[in-house]
Design a protein around this nucleic acid. Structure first.
Length: 204
DNA sequence: GTACAGATTGAG
DNA sequence: TCAATCTGTACT
């Protein structure tokens, strides 16, 4: 069953969305072609309190202002002057929370920068509404990972130890985020999620 | 205005 | 291990 994800999905708590996006399909329409890739790796960035987030402390800059949009919008920005990073906003309007899409199940989309290059995503998609857009959206193709009933998210997880949850075919692993060692204790939060044993997940 | 670091990547 | 090179922040 193919079903486009609705506003209701995106406005759920960020950690939940980050986890449930795994196994969903990102669809990008390029002219008459349609590129589709399964999401296999994500990271959550939670608002004013997350030191690794651009909106840490409630800052609103020209770059990160779209992060404050209601769940279901695209927040895309340039990193290191050359790589675009695709984020999906979550939660309610005014709350700077989002999920970074780090990898798709495609050899040319195995990293946040490569993914955007492959799907031809750039600044023109900043603020795009995934529930209304005709050129990019996310689908549930009936093979979704089973919602976790075991490990609790957030504060309940112990840093430095990977937790595997989800009894479905595809297991979800939670571990610490990548490339944000400067963020102190926030760098250790197990807010990176990926599908266990998936070959397209970055190996770190 | 200048200096520097960053949610990265591919080449050497 | 490094450089590519845009954006935001902390200085002068």
């Amino acid at each position: 069953m193919v079903k486009k994800l609705s506003r209701k999905f995106y406005t759920q708590p960020t950690l939940k969305v980050a986890k449930e996006l795994l196994g969903k399909y990102l669809v990008r329409k390029l002219g008459s072609r349609k590129l589709v890739g399964k999401i296999v790796e994500t990271e959550a960035y939670i608002g004013p309190e997350d030191r690794a987030s651009h909106s840490f402390g409630g800052k609103v800059t020209e770059r990160c202002k779209t992060e404050y949009l209601e769940g279901g919008h695209i927040y895309i920005y340039l990193c290191y002057g050359m790589h675009w990073q695709l984020n999906i906003t979550t939660s309610l309007a005014g709350k700077p929370e989002c999920v970074l899409i780090r990898a798709l199940g495609h050899p040319l989309a195995t990293g946040p920068g490569k993914l955007c290059n492959y799907l031809k995503l750039n600044k023109s998609f900043d603020g795009e509404d995934l529930t209304k857009s005709k050129r990019v959206w996310i689908e549930n193709r009936g093979k979704r990972t089973k919602p976790s009933t075991g490990a609790k998210l957030g504060a309940g997880l112990v840093p430095h130890r990977n937790k595997v949850s989800g009894a479905g075919k595809q297991q979800v692993v939670a571990t610490k985020r990548i490339g944000i060692d400067y963020a102190g204790s926030w760098a250790k939060k197990p807010w990176r999620f990926y599908l266990k044993n998936n070959p397209f997940v970055s190996k770190i």
